[in-house]
Design a protein around this nucleic acid. Sequence first.
DNA 1: GACATGACCTCTG
DNA 2: CCAGAGGCCATGT
Length: 96
Amino acid sequence: MVPFGRVTTYGAIASYLGSPGAARMVGWAMNQCHSSPHYVPAHRVVNRVGLLTGKHHFDGSSLMQEMLENEGAIIEENRIMNMEDMFWDPVQELGL
DNA sequence: GACATGACCTCTG
DNA sequence: CCAGAGGCCATGT
């Protein structure tokens, strides 16, 4: 549901799902989304400071970064510099 | 059934 | 500001 050009965090997703502290489970879900028939923009999910912690789980080592940069993100040292502008909070945007 | 691990977060000292 | 510890929940051995 994360729109083009926006990113969100594991914690935000977990919080939206009703388990504020279950960010790890979200990471696990992202890992499993490989085998999901639905399209999951996992590249738009980063940790709270905008660090691309899951980049190693994509095909290339820079695929995630490339896709994010393609969506307007400014990435430097595996980190989204303009995180504040890109951040998309499901709780705030979709309502809880 | 216990124990370890994971694309994390938050609080403490 | 940096480091450590605890919590979260599903999965695999």
